[in-house]
Simulated assay, not measured.
Amino acid sequence: MTTTTTAEPMGPSQASLYQQLRGHLAALKLTAAAEHLPAVLDQATAEGLSVTAALERLLALEVTDTEARRLAGRLRFASLPSPATIEGFDLDAAPGVDPALINELATCRYLETATNVLLIGPPGVGKTHLAVGLARKAAEAGYRTYFTTAADLAARCHKAAIEGRWAYTMRFFAGPTLLVIDELGYLPLPAEAASALFQVISQRYLKTSIILTTNRGVASWGEVLGDTTVAAAMLDRLLHRSVVLNLDGDSYRLRAHHAATDTLRRATTGTARPLQ
């Protein structure tokens, strides 16, 4: 007589546990962890990792992915006009700039004290490059950053006033920890534009930082803004807690032109001497 025995009910299979774990990660929106789970489990088996070590490795991948997404979002919001970096700035071509000061600004510690940075110099010496590089460092450090030109800021404020969105626009420009205002002085500003710029600077005063680039010395800001009283009040707020860099030297574009000419001369004449 044959006796049939019933097997003990089996617990969830390894495959089922794996699918449940993937489902949990997906439900928690830990997409990077879910994506890398198979590889981490394989590594845990191959390397004999403990459960704690395997979890740390898995969650570290999720943290890295999350930080990368957040940085990408901050950079999109920042609206930087170029991929310029502090590391790519040619300090040798800017003898008046202290490398130690640039390195200090790159730490972003000035943002903690709502210190402003004024970059003053003729066109082409790297003011915008430095401003973009510092803005990039701020975004990388986790600070909300926004880049605009003085003309675009003025135009946006003018449109907001017409459309009844003035308060909203002022809140927008007050929000970022770092606001970069590029190219003040390149185009004349009408009275209402100068007033808008002053109000943006005033509401950020001693609260958040501004980087401002200009080709005009502070003594001529009254001419730029069309009102010496507004210019004085604006400078009073900007300079109260600030770092001022005066840049000089040959234009970046002229240096690039000279370098290209030298390369062409060497290729065609075999000498670096100017053609006679």
Score class of each variant (00 low, 15 high):
Ala256Arg: 02
Gly226Lys: 01
Arg253Cys: 07
Leu239Gln: 14
Gly226Leu: 05
Ala267Glu: 15
Ser220Gln: 13
Gly226Asn: 09
Ala260Gly: 02
Asn246Ala: 13
Arg216Phe: 09
His258Gln: 14
Val244Gln: 07
Leu239Phe: 12
Val230Arg: 14
Thr229Glu: 11
Leu254Pro: 05
Thr263Trp: 03
Ile211Phe: 04
Ile210Ala: 04
Leu245Ala: 00
Leu235Asn: 11
Gly222Phe: 11
Arg253Ile: 01
Ala260His: 10
Asp236Gln: 12
Gly249Ala: 06
Ala256His: 00
Gly249Glu: 06
Trp221Arg: 02
Arg265Trp: 10
Leu264His: 10
Ala256Ser: 02
Ala233Glu: 01
Leu239Ile: 11
Leu225Gln: 09
Thr263Pro: 02
Arg237Ala: 02
Asp236Gly: 15
Thr261Gly: 04
Thr214Ala: 12
Asn215Lys: 01
Leu247Gly: 04
Arg253Asp: 01
Ile211Ser: 04
Gly222Val: 08
Asn246Leu: 14
His257Cys: 04
Thr213Val: 05
Arg216Met: 13
Thr213Pro: 07
Arg253Tyr: 03
Gly217Tyr: 02
Met234Phe: 00
Ala219Glu: 15
Val243Leu: 09
Leu245Arg: 02
Val243Cys: 08
Thr229Cys: 00
Met234His: 02
Val243Ala: 03
Asp248Lys: 08
Ser242His: 06
Asp250Gln: 05
Leu238Cys: 14
